[in-house]
Design a protein around this nucleic acid. Sequence first.
DNA 1: ATCCTATCCTGGCTGC
DNA 2: TGCAGCCAGGATAGGA
Length: 286
Amino acid sequence: MPELPEVETVVRLIRPRLVGRTIAGARVHWTRTLGGVSPARFTRAVTGARVTRVWRRAKYAVLDLEREAAPAGFLVGHLRMTGRFHVEPPGYDPGPHLRVSLPLDDGRTFHFIDVRKFGRLWFTTRLETLLGRLGPEPLDDDFTADWLLAALRAKRRQLKPLLLDQTFLAGLGNIYVDEALHRSGLHPLRPSQRVDAAHARRLHAAIRETLTAAIAREGSSFDVFYRTPEGQPGQYQDEFRVYARAGQPCLACGTPVERLIVGQRGTHVCPTCQPPPRKRRAITRP
DNA sequence: ATCCTATCCTGGCTGC
DNA sequence: TGCAGCCAGGATAGGA
């Protein structure tokens, strides 16, 4: 599923095809993709606007729009599970799952394609309403090991659901949480307040290393859904240590990888490298 | 504060 | 071969 590395890959590839382009119109094939904005208002808002910048925050792609050299709002996309962005020349067949098309002034068209219709393409003038609650960006300088240790201790939640919570830390999804927890030797069920300083440091490093390595390989494509805007699969799935490897030997110790459900999510863990938390008996005062 | 469940969707898979 | 039923999964809302 598209997580931070996949969105970063997509943004890098569509950026040169979008920056400087003027949007010539809009065709909306599935209204709910717009996240509550009516097709008429959406079309009015984007038509004639010029894209000045394409960037990423967490799993969101953002296009800054300008009209007559003045800010004109933002197009914000979230691919969720099956969304894809393509910028294609005339004659390209976007297939049956096309949700929104934005023809550009150079003859190409920006397509938002999404099989499961969970993805969104919002127009907004206030970015804060969409991005304001997000936690720190894991590859930015303000995400430090010290911050992570303090933040983990301030919560009393299982590690996996906490790391999936975008208001805690922004950009991780099911794949990279499992991979980062394995790299740091932490079990997904461990309570966050019981992570010691050394493990917090390992987790901080593991999150950054996992994301950086995945970006270098253009993300992960273990199913038919995620492809780069040029139609290529990513390559990081070849380096998964636990994700989608249930029953196969842990690459570090040989123990079969287990699959369990944590917070309603399929979760992959090496029970040797990631010892499960011991149940604490209730503390009874004499 | 944290946890749990339902919701949104479709294609792919399982089992009969 | 056909079909019903189940499942995954990011984010969020509402209830416990």
